[in-house]
Design a binder for these strands. Structure first.
Lengths: 342, 342
DNA sequence: TTGAAAGCGATACCAG
DNA sequence: CTGGTATCGCTTTCAA
């Protein structure tokens, strides 16, 4: 691979001049520019981005850390960041497969080694304290899908509590009175908040959800199926089912129908996330839209903004107090309908 | 951000020594090692990967170029590469949003600038010739999902023709005689090959497919719905439908059922790809498994292998004549069954 | 308009 | 075991 020196030598100019034409410096004579350009083409020259980054102390990489790519939800998240990257002529450095605090920590560290100072991180395992400490060292670190009060202005998150409430209000408005819910067995924040919002709103309306009608399972199709079987075998009846996410909801519907219940005529089912799947299922799933791609874009832009600010005003603490909270939007499709039992 | 010099100064040693402890060189005295390590922690030191790459001429990045991340198929591809990257302690540089030959070319070039010499590329727009030329310059370039004879050993691809044949054999074995097919309107290679394999096998068995029973549409749910309407309105009957991909197949099923046809009792439907979706649909979709994740892993490993080989034997042309062809596997689920018409 | 030279932050060879 | 130093490929003053 030819270097700037090779070009300089062959073209009979100094490296400084070559550098200038590479960077489009207007004060190179047109003639030399042409000459140099030709040699670059001949030798198939490509500037070395590493060397460049080293001297300019600038980095055109934006890092993304997510648990997995196969989950469409995270794929959308990555996609949102990618769009911003493209728009800003930056590139995506992606890290997945996070399972432990240690692996999350390591992923962040790898990004730091590359001096990638803009990063969008989806962390569920690291503690608030560690994240706060990290964010002090990394000005361009933005958390997505998580809210930490002390660094609120660097978090882009969804109001899961409100999402649960919205679901409850929707079912309540449809006249439902007997509720069940399927949640995720994983004790990350989201499932708890969604369920809490849901039950809280029910309580406010004078209803309650039987504890035996709350099941926990793997947050996927099969988990939804199994949880639903448990629900059914409890012997208790319900006309409305609030499920942690769309995949589980689709699994639930499938099991309900296998057991002779029609959705939504007999039982209304509402999911969460509004992934592609929910539009493909039959009946089409009513759910809460989680605008993850938009949020990811926002997060990426925010991260870029933060690094710029840092440069502009080194030690001047400019505490952005803006909050980046999103509220899920109800998407009414076919799996919920008026309750005809009461 | 502190540098190796800072550490050396504070610890009272030379940069060489610091470098040694960073790289775990066994011949540093335990005591100095401890001292240096402490300072590194104190100053929150992180080695600069760019500087490192510059001097070692080694790069721990593996590049992936795909059209999009939102498409689960490509997400799986990226995921496969990521797994290999992780396993080799490398990192993923991802580029998406390819729409034209120019953008594909640019994406590859950005990877080159970063001296990322291992790359897995999914290119549909660049010509064979350009790709061949490129692969001569980039030893670690591997093409996925595309086959170019001259650089066959650097292509990891699926035999779409054979896939079509397998589908045909499956339907034939189920006693079907009247066929229809939905293909993609986009004139990339795959749809043509799949359909050709399908019809060729039918012909071999003494059957044919009515040209009016071949529809083309957008390769998504809606495209499948629309194409199916066209098929139905032709007035011609058929008992088996071969669809370009799973999304279209699910759209097709939906339309068929809306029109009073039962799947598979009245009409058998078979898709292609075996994406997650096909397991969620009802009836569960019979389809051809496209082991894209496995293929992506293979491609990534191959790319790494190629760069190593290059290093081992510079000019010695070691033409790997191995071929990396995959054949799709029939996944029989619920959407195809014995024809009861004949 | 161009060139010489001083780094950027690390590695690795050669001495000692 | 440790230190000095040339070097990687490029950008960026400072002079000419």
């Amino acid at each position: 691979m030819s270097t700037i020196k090779d070009i300089a030598r062959v073209a009979g100019v100094s490296v400084a001049t070559v550098s200038r034409v590479v960077n489009n410096d207007p004060k190179v004579k047109e003639k030399t520019k042409l000459k140099v350009t030709k040699v670059m083409l001949d030798l198939n020259y490509t500037p070395n981005a590493n060397a460049r980054a080293l001297v300019t102390q600038k980095n055109t990489t934006i890092g993304v850390i997510i648990p997995s790519l196969t989950d469409p939800f995270f794929a959308s998240l990555a996609n949102g960041v990618e769009q911003v990257a493209r728009q800003q002529s930056m590139q995506l450095l992606l890290s997945t497969g996070l399972v432990s605090a240690e692996s999350e920590r390591q992923a962040i560290n790898l990004l730091r080694e590359r001096r990638c100072d803009v990063m969008v991180v989806h962390s569920k395992k690291l503690t608030d304290d560690e994240l706060i400490a990290l964010s002090e060292q990394i000005p361009g670190l933005v958390l997505i899908d998580r809210h930490i009060e002390q660094i609120s202005h660097r978090c882009v998150w969804l109001d899961n509590l409100e999402g649960g409430k919205i679901a409850a209000r929707h079912l309540l408005a449809l006249n439902h009175q007997k509720f069940a819910s399927i949640s995720s067995k994983y004790q990350i924040e989201d499932p708890g908040l969604r369920l809490e919002g849901f039950t809280r709103e029910l309580t406010g309306a004078g209803f309650a959800i039987d504890k035996e009608l709350i099941e926990y399972g793997e947050p996927n199709l099969q988990g939804g199926e199994i949880a639903t079987q448990h629900l059914l075998s409890s012997g208790k009846t319900f006309s409305a089912l609030f499920v942690y996410n769309d995949a589980m909801a689709i699994g639930a519907i499938s099991t309900l129908e296998d057991n002779g219940y029609r959705v939504p005529q007999d039982i209304s089912v509402i999911g969460f996330d509004d992934v592609l799947l929910s539009r493909y299922s039959r009946p089409k799933l009513s759910t809460l839209n989680y605008p993850i791609e938009e949020m990811a874009q926002q997060a990426a832009n925010l991260a870029i903004e933060l690094t710029k600010e840092r440069k502009a005003a080194k030690d001047e603490y400019k505490v952005e107090s803006k909050t980046h909270k999103y509220v899920p939007r109800l998407v009414k499709r076919e799996s919920t309908s008026l309750c005809n039992e009461n």
